[in-house]
Amino acid sequence: MTELSFAKQFLTTLDTKPTKIPADHVEDPRNYPAHSAYILPKMPKPLAKKQKLAPGSERSLDITLKSLRNPPLDITLSSQSPSTSILDLKTAITSQTSIPISTLRLLYKKKPVSDSKVLKDIVSEEEHKAEFSVMVLGVRRLSKRVRKRSFHR
Rank of each mutant, 00 (worst) to 15 (best):
P46F: 00
T64W: 03
I101N: 01
L47C: 09
R149E: 00
P33I: 15
V134I: 14
S98T: 13
Q96W: 11
S57L: 05
A92Y: 01
S133M: 06
M1P: 01
A34E: 06
S102M: 04
S60H: 02
M135N: 10
F151I: 02
D88M: 08
S143E: 07
K144F: 04
K109M: 06
S150G: 10
K129D: 05
I122N: 02
Y108P: 09
L119K: 13
K144W: 01
K49Q: 15
K109S: 12
T19E: 07
D121E: 10
L77A: 08
F10L: 14
K117N: 10
T13P: 00
K111T: 15
R145D: 00
A54Q: 07
Q80G: 06
F10Q: 07
S5L: 06
A34S: 09
P55E: 14
K110I: 04
V134F: 04
R140S: 09
Q80Y: 12
K120Y: 14
K45I: 14
L14C: 05
L106I: 08
S5K: 12
K17P: 00
Q51F: 05
A7M: 09
I63P: 06
L137A: 05
F6S: 15
A54Y: 06
K45M: 04
A7T: 07
S133H: 09
K42H: 13
N31M: 09
R147Q: 12
P71D: 13
T12L: 04
S81A: 11
T103H: 10
K17W: 06
K49C: 10
S36Y: 10
P82A: 14
T97C: 03
D15G: 05
L137M: 15
A34D: 10
A48E: 08
P71N: 15
R140K: 14
V123E: 13
R145Q: 02
I39D: 13
A37P: 00
L119A: 12
K90H: 14
A92F: 02
T103R: 11
R105A: 09
K52A: 12
G138C: 08
A37T: 03
P46N: 03
T84D: 07
K109Y: 09
H25E: 08
V26D: 10
R59C: 03
S143A: 11
T91W: 02
L137P: 01
P46K: 04
V139W: 11
Q51P: 04
S116M: 11
L137H: 06
K110Q: 14
E131K: 01
P46D: 00
I99E: 02
R141K: 15
F132N: 08
T64P: 02
S78A: 13
P18N: 10
L87Y: 04
P112W: 14
P22D: 14
S102Q: 11
Q51S: 07
K8V: 01
R69M: 07
P72K: 11
S114E: 15
S83E: 10
D15K: 06
N70K: 05
P29V: 15
P33V: 07
P18K: 06
Q51K: 13
I93K: 03
H35K: 14
K50H: 09
L137G: 07
R149H: 02
P72D: 07
H25G: 05
R30T: 12
S81Q: 10
